[in-house]
Computed example of a mutant assay.
Amino acid sequence: MLGSLLVGFIIGLIAAAISNRGERMGCFGKTFLGLLGAGLGQFLFGKWGPVLRDTAIIPSILGAIILLAIFWRRDS
């Protein structure tokens, strides 16, 4: 459980850094973003690439970037 939260946080951090959005999201927001992005990314793109704690990293980051692009404005 704790490992999954840590992976979600890392995915949220990477997605926010790549997309330049979600700077003011906070730790819990980035963890939630990473977990939801992992679910969406693995649903849309499958499980390929490096895997950490049963989470495919690349599809998860892509899913988190999609969520940021849809739901997060650049100036907030």
Rank of each mutant, 00 (worst) to 15 (best):
M1K: 12
P59F: 07
S60C: 09
G22K: 10
K30L: 15
L36H: 08
F9W: 15
I66Q: 00
I61F: 05
L13E: 15
A38L: 00
L2C: 01
N20E: 11
G41W: 01
Q42W: 00
T55P: 00
M25A: 07
G49V: 06
G37R: 02
P59D: 13
K47V: 08
S60T: 07
G22C: 09
L52M: 13
F28Y: 10
I18L: 15
G63S: 11
I58N: 06
L62E: 03
A64N: 03
R24G: 11
C27R: 10
A64F: 02
F43Y: 11
G46I: 09
I14Q: 06
A17S: 15
I61D: 06
A16G: 08
F45E: 02
C27K: 11
R21F: 05
G34S: 03
R73K: 14
G26K: 10
L6M: 14
K30M: 12
L40G: 00
L2K: 12
S60M: 08
S76K: 13
R24M: 10
V7P: 07
M1S: 14
T31D: 05
I58R: 04
I10W: 08
A16L: 02
S60R: 04
I61W: 02
E23A: 13
L6A: 15
S4W: 10
M1W: 08
G49K: 05
A69K: 14
I11T: 12
W48D: 01
L67N: 04
M1R: 10
I70V: 15
W48F: 14
F28S: 10
L68T: 06
V51Q: 10
F32G: 10
A15M: 09
G29N: 07
I70Y: 03
A17E: 13
F9Y: 15
F32E: 04
L5H: 14
G12F: 08
L5T: 06
M25E: 06
T31E: 03
A17Q: 14
G63F: 04
F28W: 08
I18W: 02
R73F: 01
L13M: 15
M1E: 13
M1T: 14
S76M: 08
G12C: 11
A64T: 03
G63R: 07
P59M: 11
S76L: 10
L2H: 08
D75P: 01
W72Q: 15
G49W: 06
A69D: 13
I10R: 03
I66P: 00
I57F: 06
T55M: 09
F43M: 10
G26V: 11
P59K: 06
G22L: 09
L5S: 12
F32K: 07
R24S: 14
P59Q: 12
M1V: 12
D75Y: 01
N20R: 13
P59Y: 06
A64P: 05
I66S: 00
E23W: 03
G22F: 05
W48H: 11
G41I: 01
F45W: 12
